[in-house]
Computed example of a mutant assay.
Amino acid sequence: MNPRIRNVRKLLLSDNWYTLHKVVFDYQMPDGSWVEQVRESYDRGNGAAVLLYNIEKSTVILISQFRMPTYLNGNESGMMIEACAGLLDGDDPETCVIKEAEEESGFRVSKVEKIYEAYMSPGAVTEVVHLYIGQYEESDRVGTGGGLKEEHEDISVLELDFSKALDLMDNGQIRDAKTIILLQHLKLLGLMR
Rank of each mutant, 00 (worst) to 15 (best):
L148I: 11
L13Y: 10
M80I: 15
E82T: 15
V97C: 10
D154K: 09
L11F: 07
A118T: 10
A85Q: 05
A83C: 15
S33F: 01
L62P: 00
H21E: 15
N16A: 08
G32F: 02
D170N: 11
Y132H: 12
C84W: 01
G90N: 07
R6T: 11
L158F: 03
L52F: 05
F162M: 00
A124I: 15
G190F: 07
I180Q: 00
S14K: 12
Y18W: 03
L158I: 08
T95Y: 02
L72T: 06
D140Y: 03
F25N: 06
F162Y: 01
A118E: 07
Q37F: 13
M80E: 12
Y136Q: 02
L131S: 07
V38A: 09
E137Y: 01
G146D: 07
D31I: 12
I115H: 01
T126M: 10
V125Q: 14
Y53C: 09
R39G: 05
I115Y: 02
G172L: 00
Y132N: 08
G86P: 07
S156P: 01
L160E: 11
Y119A: 08
V97P: 15
F66Y: 11
V38R: 15
N171A: 05
S14G: 11
K164Y: 02
A101M: 11
Y119Q: 07
H21C: 15
P69T: 13
R44T: 15
R9I: 09
K57C: 05
H130T: 14
E103H: 06
R4F: 03
P93Y: 01
M120E: 14
L186K: 13
P3T: 11
L20Q: 11
L11P: 15
G86H: 01
Y18G: 14
P93H: 00
D89M: 12
A83G: 12
E151A: 05
V24P: 09
E127G: 12
T126E: 10
Y71E: 04
T70I: 04
